[in-house]
Nucleic acid binder design. Structure first.
Lengths: 127, 127
DNA sequence: ATTGGTAATGGAAATCATTATCAAATAAAT
DNA sequence: ATTTATTTGATAATGATTTCCATTACCAAT
């Protein structure tokens, strides 16, 4: 959790493992996966897939989380851009939707993700 | 493309391969992957990751697509629920956001996904 | 009709993230 | 202190996706 709190990046399980080994050299990759899965299930960590074949993990939204953000993904070079603009406007709608969905589908919802997919300027010029 | 047009499901590459073989028995799985990747890059197909280790593909939004929908994911049992409610309200905001993001980050955006994460009623009762 | 070059194809092997297995280590309970 | 249960990590297994490469399809120019 501390590793995730202290970064703005989207860390993969292996990234986290490499960091964790510096703190506790005897830790195993399996434990990292197990713990991330646990954290994800209790809702404190958000597992993200950006389509590059490996999962990323970031702190789920809560008081500890500095900034809620959404993602902009380039489907060519797989670049991921975080954006925090327009979040305010989105938030109200998302909360409304979340509440309605919770009731209708009997889900206890604790997080959401929004991804926009497209092609970044760099890849568009190269094409 | 026809296979994707004629289903409401989220097909995996293998699902599509199995269907494709019935039409052209000599087609290879590699070609299916290659073609799906191509379609995804040109924006007519949306590649989705639901956290179960295999990618799913569906028609990207366009006039051919019957219904735009978003996803509700149970982080315990990995169940995925499509919902089409509230889409109308979301759409206006998403289009506005999309336009603003396109300008600011110089992305050509052609799709978006919204996922809500939580725990379904079944898993909540079992816990 | 033939040629030659390029692009597309598919099968097999390789890759790589993730999961399962299991024995050892640690903690908890009696 | 001894037994029991839980957690851990190393290794192996799994399985989706990619890479590699030989073969084939395509097509324009001869």
């Amino acid at each position: 959790m501390n590793l995730l709190r202290n970064t703005e990046k989207h860390l993969s399980a292996e990234d986290i493992y490499i960091d964790a080994v510096r703190i506790n050299p005897s830790i195993g990759l399996t434990t990292v996966y197990r713990t991330l899965d646990l954290f994800s299930q209790i809702g404190v960590v958000q597992k993200c897939d950006f389509g590059d074949g490996r999962a990323r993990y970031e702190l789920a939204d809560n008081p500890l989380k500095k900034s809620h953000h959404h993602h902009l993904v380039c489907v060519k070079c797989k670049t991921i851009v975080d954006y925090t603009d327009f979040i305010g406007e989105e938030l109200e709608l998302m909360q409304k939707t979340e509440k309605a969905l919770s009731l209708k589908h009997r889900f206890k919802i604790f997080n959401h993700t929004i991804h926009f997919y497209g092609i970044c300027s760099k890849c568009r010029l190269e094409a």
